[in-house]
Design a protein around this nucleic acid. Structure first.
Lengths: 197, 197
DNA sequence: CGGAACATGTAACTCGTTACATGATTAC
DNA sequence: GTAATCATGTAACGAGTTACATGTTCCG
């Protein structure tokens, strides 16, 4: 249900084609809310049907076409309403901690591989999120600069940057926490393994 | 896809009816991998169809019946294979951090309510997980005690407890991290609000 | 005899995943 | 001309959510 609001957040800055939107998406909000192109196109059509966005079909060369989407006042209001509404949290569904709770059923080596995989996984996320943080600090993210160009109000610009930085800081801390936990996990496997022999 | 392994983990300890399984589930693995009863019953039927579990239909009074499920050797092996296989991570889809990145689009009060809701949410999780940790320490969790009764090997018992404790410690730390982040968020809102006036 | 707990589901729907399908235009 | 990139999707499936549906047995 959040996908459409992620899309609205990007489109509110200015009109984009489905293609451009999908590209921008993976480079910004996609780090927080993943969605493949094959989900974005149908969702845009659905939002169009509900009057949240409108598409202007443009010719591209002889036979090519593209649909430029822009947010309607209804869509704008829907986004603002969502922002002001209580957030719906998903129920916890955490495969890594589920598995961790049953590691006694496998070999020490498999347990080590699990924790090493966990570290790799979160290192990967960390790189993405730290990269985004750098882009935010340096104002080198394309969506962010478009967003900042759209306003002259210095306060709004400041808050825009502050909240984006803050959001990614939270994600970075989470990744660091997972990595630290998994490293302690490796130590635990070693210790239990040593005790057993 | 993890649901069936969560179910197998519980059933491996000993036979249970769908009803008992669902109850045990919410009190143990359900804290890590949520699933409603209406998902558990069909999944058991599906697993039965795939030969991972078998059901023994028992009479209960005159007309009542219940299906006692137990794990087959195939199911046992499937669980062990899963434990030794690389874990499939889900793509990040984090509504809270998505919203946090766009808080400049709403009022300071709505931003505060968001962070307060975030704190409430994770306080709730924290209570669950700290409760589980206490049950683990005190050996007062019914599934855990059944699990421990099933083995006499002191090493296995020790590791069983150690990994469960470790898994829940990780969850508790995550919850504490989210709460700390949201508290800093409240301070940020105040600061930006003060700067703006 | 009435309510709590036991017991097992179905149906409709939304969201997300994976794989596939197709063609146009631009830059070299 | 050919490869990269632009551009837009569909189809089938699996997982999860919400609401509903139904009946039994045990305990006081």
């Amino acid at each position: 249900m959040s996908l459409r609001y992620a899309l609205l957040a990007l489109l509110r800055v200015g009109p984009l084609s489905g293609y451009d939107l999908a590209k921008q998406f993976t480079q910004s909000v996609g780090h927080v809310w993943h969605a493949p192109d094959s989900q974005i196109y149908p969702e845009l059509r659905k939002m169009e049907g509900e009057g949240l966005v409108e598409a202007e079909e443009q010719a591209r060369g002889e036979r090519g076409r593209r649909r430029m989407y822009h947010v309607t006042p209804t869509g704008d209001q829907a986004f603002l309403d969502w922002m002001a509404s209580p957030l719906e949290y998903q129920r916890t569904r955490d495969p890594a901690h589920l598995r961790a709770a049953y590691l006694e059923t496998t070999t020490p080596d498999a347990a080590r591989e699990f924790f090493e995989g966990h570290i790799r996984q979160w290192q990967g996320e960390l790189v993405q999120w730290e990269g985004e943080l750098t882009h935010i600090e340096m104002l080198s993210n394309p969506m962010l600069t478009r967003r900042l160009e759209a306003t002259t109000d210095e306060d709004v610009r400041k808050r825009t940057i502050a909240y984006k930085r803050f959001a990614y800081e939270g994600l970075v801390e989470h990744a660091l926490g997972e990595i630290a936990w998994a490293e302690r996990g490796l130590a635990l496997v070693d210790q239990l393994d040593a005790d057993a022999t």
